[in-house]
């Protein structure tokens, strides 16, 4: 594969990753050119063998057809599977199964990268807040563009290198992140949303006793394992009852 072809595949691969904004975000990116079937078509065009591209893309697509990515849980890294697995399978004349087997070791790396990105990006959030507070609103507004650099680094370069240097390079790539460091990022990544929710609580809650509502919402999910929409319906019922039976409204209102 020529450097130029690898470059094109890496650029489109990055744009079609879950946080790539350039093709209308999730809509044209992740859910369109990010699907292995469409990726196979595009890679086939770049490498000059559309039919093989579609066939291999379809085989990988069949594996990942039910891939739903709620929040941040990533069952497998379809981005590397598509943009590294498919091109390497096409150039080596291998079967779709080969493309899938290549993507499996990359899956762990891909998931570690997701956690790395969402952890490092916290720095941009704080930068944005600083910029707003010091009146640099233009810069603050550009944070989603500037902050995408992390996603570019962890998607563009691995795809470029793997495609240009070939399958032998994939195993080297997988060993880039030592397991212990990856673990720290995953543990930290799991804990950090607590900070965001702490902030929200501070913002919305007026009275300490209202923590009970928060706790009840938590218990509904953690203990009773119901899903978010039923939990919201229960919340609506509570809000209704509170208003209906709260005598203070008629007299002084709630400030």
């Amino acid at each position: 594969m020529s450097l130029f072809q690898a470059f094109l595949i890496a650029l489109i691969g990055y744009s079609s990753s879950i946080y790539g904004p350039w093709f209308l975000g999730l809509m044209g990116g992740w859910y369109t050119i990010g699907r292995p079937l469409i990726a196979g078509t595009i890679i086939g065009i770049i490498l000059g063998d559309i039919q093989t591209g579609i066939l291999i893309g379809a085989a990988i697509q069949a594996l990942y057809i039910g891939l739903v990515t709620p929040g941040l849980s990533m069952p497998g890294d379809v981005n590397f599977a598509a943009y590294i697995g498919i091109p390497l399978a096409i150039v080596s004349g291998a079967t779709p199964e080969y493309a899938v087997s290549l993507s499996v070791p990359l899956s762990f790396l891909g998931v570690a990268f997701v956690y790395l990105v969402v952890t490092v990006n916290v720095l941009f959030v704080h930068k944005q807040e600083q910029w707003i507070e010091s009146g640099k609103l233009g810069l603050a507004t550009k944070v989603p563009i500037i902050g995408n650099i992390t996603q570019f680094i962890v998607r563009f370069f691995p795809i470029l290198l793997a495609n240009y240097y070939g399958a032998a390079y994939v195993s080297k790539l997988v060993n880039i992140i030592p397991e212990s460091l990856g673990n720290i990022f995953i543990v930290l990544g799991g804990m950090l949303p607590a900070v965001g929710f702490g902030l929200l609580l501070k913002f919305i809650m007026k009275d300490n006793i209202e923590l009970l509502y928060f706790l009840f919402g938590f218990v509904l999910i953690a203990v009773f394992k119901i899903s978010i929409i039923p939990a919201t319906i229960i919340a609506l019922l509570f809000a209704y009852l509170d208003i209906k039976y709260n005598k203070s409204f008629s007299k002084e209102g709630v400030a």
């Binding site: 929040g71 941040l72 543990v187 799991g190 804990m191 949303p193 607590a194 929710f197 929200l200 609580l201 919305i204 809650m205 007026k206 209202e210 509502y213 928060f214 706790l215 009840f216 919402g217 938590f218 218990v219 509904l220 999910i221 953690a222 978010i228 939990a231 919201t232 229960i234 919340a235 609506l236 509570f238 809000a239 209704y240 509170d242 208003i243 709260n246 409204f249 209102g253 709630v254 400030a255």
Partner: peptide, 27 residues
């Protein structure tokens, strides 16, 4: 206004609780 603010507050607090349970993880 007060009624609706209060209602939105209660629903909001419960939803924060619910999504905290979904998103924050520590094994």
């Amino acid at each position: 206004k007060d009624l609706i603010t209060r209602a939105a507050n209660i629903v909001g607090l419960m939803v924060i609780g619910a999504i905290s349970a979904q998103y924050v993880s520590a094994n």
